Structure formats: C-alpha cells, structure tokens
Amino acid sequence: MNKNNYAIIMAGGIGSRFWPISRSSHPKQFIDILGTGKTLIQNTYERFLKVCPKENIYVVTNENYTKLVKQQLPDMADGQILTEPVMRNTAPCVAYGCFKIESLNPEAVIVVAPSDQQILDEDAFVSAIE
C-alpha cells in the first residue's frame, strides 16, 4: 500500500433530500440506510482502507457532527477529523482537507469522496483509484 495515498471523506451535509429519515441532527451519512448493519460513512471508510493506510484517511465535517464521526469511526484519531465551524459546501471542504494533508506530506496523492455513496463493485473502485 502506498504511504502517499490519502483520502478525504466529505461528511458535512445535512442530508435534506432524505428527509424524514435524515435529519440535520442525524444526517444520512450516519444512518444505515441500506440495512447492511453499517452506515454510509462506515462503508466509505472501509472502502478507503483498501487503498490507503488508516492514518491517511481524513473526514471533513461540520463541528456539530464530530461526536457522530468519533462514534462511528472509532479508529480515527482526533487529528483526522477536520471540522468546519460553518458549512461552506464542497470547494472549501476540499481545500481545507487538501491544505491539511499537503502540510503533512507534500508528496500526497489525494482522493476526495462523499460519505454517502453506494459503490457496488469495490474491486473496480480500488482499481480505478490505484
């Protein structure tokens, strides 16, 4: 596994399109919507474990969701959870995560993904990332 591979998981959205299942206090990325026993963010995290070391996976989220991230991804260190004080959409989220990672490893290769996608062919996903 390449130690320069990093992942940023975007997990700050409120999941309003999945209302009433998803609420701003507990949005869709933290819900087991598919009934698999794992939430969408847990599936995303596990998918990235196949392409980069666990210490190279970062989550960018709203500070209101920090506790949910820690509960659902207990292997993540506090420094891997990047919190935004205010939701500012995709571009600032990506910029924040990339700035943080680049400051740690200028040779980093970074993949950015939303926390709430379903990917059925994980082998193809891993192959595409590699």
Rank of each mutant, 00 (worst) to 15 (best):
N4Q: 05
L49T: 13
V111T: 13
A124N: 09
V111F: 04
D121H: 10
V60R: 07
L73C: 00
P53F: 03
N56G: 00
E46L: 15
P20K: 14
A77T: 10
S103G: 06
N105D: 14
I41A: 05
M10N: 08
K67W: 00
V109S: 08
N62K: 08
I14M: 11
K100A: 14
F18C: 12
Q117V: 15
P92H: 07
E122Y: 08
E46A: 14
Q117A: 15
A91N: 15
F48E: 12
P20C: 09
C98V: 12
Q29M: 12
V60Q: 09
P53S: 09
F18V: 12
L49V: 08
H26F: 11
D78W: 04
R23Y: 02
N62V: 03
Y65D: 02
W19I: 14
E130I: 13
K67I: 03
L82W: 02
Q29L: 00
F30S: 03
D75N: 14
F48P: 02
K67S: 09
N105F: 06
G97W: 02
Q118W: 11
V59N: 06
T61C: 10
I110C: 03
F30C: 09
K100Y: 09
P74S: 06
M76N: 08
L73F: 03
V69Q: 01
D121P: 01
A95V: 15
R47N: 11
C52E: 00
V51C: 08
D75K: 14
V94G: 09
Y58H: 05
L34M: 10
Q80M: 04
P74H: 02
G79D: 06
I119Q: 06
N64I: 11
Q42K: 03
D78N: 06
F48S: 07
L34K: 11
A7P: 04
M10E: 10
A91P: 10
S24T: 15
T44G: 03
R88S: 05
A77D: 12
P20R: 07
Y96V: 13
A95G: 12
N105G: 02
D32L: 01
Y6H: 04
Q71H: 07
F18H: 12
G97I: 08
I33T: 00
V69C: 01
D32S: 04
P85W: 12
Q117L: 15
K54E: 10
E63G: 03
N56P: 00
I110A: 02
P106V: 12
I31F: 05
F125V: 05
E122N: 12
E102Y: 09
A77S: 11
A11C: 10
S22D: 12
E102W: 14
F18Y: 13
T39P: 01
A91K: 15
E122R: 07
C93E: 11
N62C: 09
P20G: 11
V51P: 01
L49W: 03
G35P: 01
M1T: 08
K38D: 07
Q118P: 01
L68G: 00
R17M: 05
K3C: 01
V111D: 04
E107D: 11
N89K: 15
H26I: 13
E130C: 08
G35E: 02
A113L: 12
T61G: 05
V60N: 06
L104A: 01
T39A: 04
P27L: 10
L104F: 00
N62Q: 11
A124Y: 14
E130L: 05
E130S: 09
A128Y: 11
D116L: 01
E84V: 08
